[in-house]
Design a protein around this nucleic acid. Structure first.
Lengths: 303, 303
DNA sequence: TGTTATTGATAATTTTTTGTTATGAGGTGG
DNA sequence: CCACCTCATAACAAAAAATTATCAATAACA
C-alpha cells in the first residue's frame, strides 16, 4: 500500500526537482526524502525516477504515480473540507417513497437540484417495508411511508414524523357511475392490480365502512390486470377492464378523467404519511431543504 | 494525513459490522482494529462510528469517510493495474505540431479515440520552439517540428526522427497569375501574416533560389493582415489583400482555390518534418499506434 | 585545472509508530 | 445465572521511520 507521506514527498520532489529543497519544504532531512522515494519505488515495484548526474527524469510509471498522487492529495483535501463544513447545497440525498408520491415529488426535487448542481437527488419508489428496510441499512437517508403499524416492533429504530395524509379512491369505469357498489359487482369487474394494490384495498375496506371483504376474502377478487407503472394503472380502468384503488393524486393527474368514476364512501378513506429516518441519525444540512420541501408539498396537496 | 491501512480497516469494519471479524479478515488482532479506528477518527477530527451496545452506527462523517475510502482503494488498485500493464488503448497522448499539420492530423487522431474511448488525444498547435520546450518539461509527449537546427545545441536532449516533408507554397491572389514575381510586387502587395509566417518566409526565400530578400530585409514587407486561425489565412489572399506562404496541405484544403495562384519556383521548397520526443524517454505502448498513424499520414501526403 | 561547495546516497543510531499479548468491563444467549 | 462473546485499555515488543554522520560524485569558480 502506498503511504500518503511518500506520495506527498514524491510530488514535492517532482515539483521542485530537488531533493534538498524538498526536504526543507516538508520540514524533514534530505536522507528522509531519499528513503521516501526508495520506499515508494519498491512499493510500486517500478523505478519512478531516472537519476542522472544531479537531476532526474520521470519514468512513465513515475508520471502515472505523480498524476495519481496529485489527484489523491486534492481529494483528501476535499474530504476534509466536507468533514468540517456541512455544505447544505452539496451531496447526495437518497430518498424513497411510494410510486404515487414519487410522481408528485420528483419534479420538485429536480428543480432544487437544478439550482444546486452538486446536490444530487436520488428518489426510489418502493413499497413500505422495503423503504423501512433500506433506511435501516443506510441505503436510504429519508423515506415517506404510510403505515408504521405493521413494522411497529421495529419502530424504535426509526424517527417518525407525520407529514400529511392522502385520500384513497376506489375507481371504476365510468359506465358504473349510476350503479350502487356491491361486493359482487367488484368481483365481476375484477381488480387492476399494482404493487400497492393489496395494501390500499385492505386499508380502503377496513376504513370505508363498506360491509365488503373481510381481509381473508380479498384474495377472491379476480385480477384482470397488473402494471407497475404508476401513471398507467388507470388506463385499463378507463377502458372498462376492471376497478382499482389509488391515492387521489394519481387520479387527479390522469388525462382521461371522463372515463372514470370515483366512488364516494360515507366516510372518506385517508392514509397517513410519515417522514421516516433512522433513529439517532442526524442528517446533514442538505436534508433541511429537502424535508421542508416534502412537508410543504404534502400540505399543499391536502388543501 | 489519512493512513491507507486505517481506511482499509475502516471499510472492512463497516462492511462486516464486526471488529473481531474485521481483524480476522485482515490478518490482524482485534485491538489493532480498535486502534486503527481510533487513529482514523482523531486524524479526521470527528467520530466516525457511534458505538452502542455491541453494534455501531455510522456518523455522517463516517459515511463520507467510508465513501472516500472505497473510492481511494479502488483507484489505487487501478493505478497498480496501470503500472504493471501498459494498456495500448488507454491513457493520454499529449501531442503538439504546427497548425497546418494539426488541421490534417486531429481528425485522424479523433477517429482512433472514437474506437478506444479511454485513449484521450490532446493535440496542441504551437510554434517549433514552444513544442521543443514543452517536450523538455514533459508537458508534451510527442511533437512534430520542422527545423531542429536553431535549437541544435539542445538537440542532444531529444530523440529525433525524420517522418516526412511538406512543400511550402508562395500564394498570391489569382489576378497576378500571368505576372512575373518581383521583389517590388511582393512589397506592394503586402504579407498576410500568421504565427509561422516569418519562419516560412525565410525558409522559402533561402531555398527557392529567388534572388529576393536577404534575411535582414524580410522585415520590410508590409503586413496587410494577420490571423492565427490556420484555415482562415487564405481568405484575405483570395480577396486580393496580400500574399502569404503556407504548406501545400493548407492550400489544398482551401475552398476557393480559383481565387488563388501558386507561384512555381525553379526549385521546390521543402521543409522537413521531424518526430521528436524527449531523449531516454520510453513512451508507453499507446504511442505505438499514434506515431505510426502520424508517419503514415505524412507519407500519404507526400504522394 | 585544481579547489571548494553542493548534491544525493548510504550506514548506523535514535525515535516514533504500530502491532501484539494480557486483561477487564459490559452485554448476550442458553 | 453462568458461560460466552465483543470491544476497550494498558503494557510491552516489534517494526518502521527519522535523524545524524559520512562519503562519492558532480558542478562552480577562481
Amino acid at each position: 500500500m502506498l503511504n500518503l507521506n511518500w506520495l506527498q514527498t514524491f510530488v514535492t520532489l517532482v515539483d521542485t526537482g530537488h531533493f534538498t529543497h524538498t526536504a526543507e519544504k516538508l520540514f524533514m532531512t534530505q536522507p528522509g526524502v531519499s528513503q521516501h522515494i526508495n520506499k515508494l519505488e519498491s512499493a510500486c515495484g517500478h523505478a519512478l525516477i531516472l537519476r542522472e548526474k544531479k537531476s532526474f527524469d520521470l519514468t512513465e510509471q513515475g508520471r502515472l504515480v505523480y498524476q495519481y498522487a496529485q489527484q489523491l492529495l486534492m481529494s483528501e483535501q476535499h474530504l476534509f473540507e466536507q468533514l468540517i463544513f456541512d455544505n447544505p447545497d452539496e451531496g447526495e440525498c437518497k430518498l424513497a417513497c411510494s410510486g404515487a408520491l414519487a410522481l408528485m415529488l420528483y419534479p420538485k426535487l429536480l428543480s432544487v437540484q437544478a439550482e444546486h448542481r452538486k446536490l444530487v437527488m436520488q428518489l426510489k419508489a418502493a413499497p413500505n417495508h422495503e423503504i423501512l428496510n433500506a433506511i435501516n441499512t443506510g441505503d436510504i437517508d429519508l423515506g415517506i411511508v404510510t403505515n408504521m403499524s405493521s413494522d411497529a416492533q421495529k419502530s424504535s429504530d426509526f424517527t417518525v414524523e407525520q407529514v400529511g395524509h392522502e385520500a384513497l379512491c376506489l375507481i371504476l369505469p365510468v359506465k358504473y357511475e349510476a350503479q350502487p357498489i356491491t361486493e359482487q359487482l367488484l368481483i365481476d369487474l375484477g381488480l387492476i392490480s399494482h404493487p400497492d394494490a393489496k395494501h390500499y384495498l385492505s386499508l380502503y375496506f377496513s376504513q370505508s365502512q363498506l360491509p365488503f371483504f373481510t381481509n381473508t376474502r380479498l384474495e377472491e377478487i379476480p385480477k384482470t390486470g397488473f402494471v407497475n407503472q404508476i401513471n398507467q394503472i388507470l388506463l385499463p380502468v378507463a377502458k372498462g377492464l376492471g376497478f382499482t384503488v389509488l391515492p387521489q393524486s394519481i387520479v387527479d393527474s390522469f388525462n382521461d378523467q371522463e372515463s372514470l368514476t370515483i366512488f364516494k364512501p360515507d366516510k372518506p378513506v385517508i392514509e397517513m404519511l410519515y417522514l421516516v429516518k433512522k433513529r439517532n441519525r442526524v442528517l446533514p444540512a442538505r436534508f433541511e431543504q429537502v424535508s421542508s420541501l416534502i412537508k410543504s408539498s404534502l400540505l399543499a396537496q391536502i388543501e
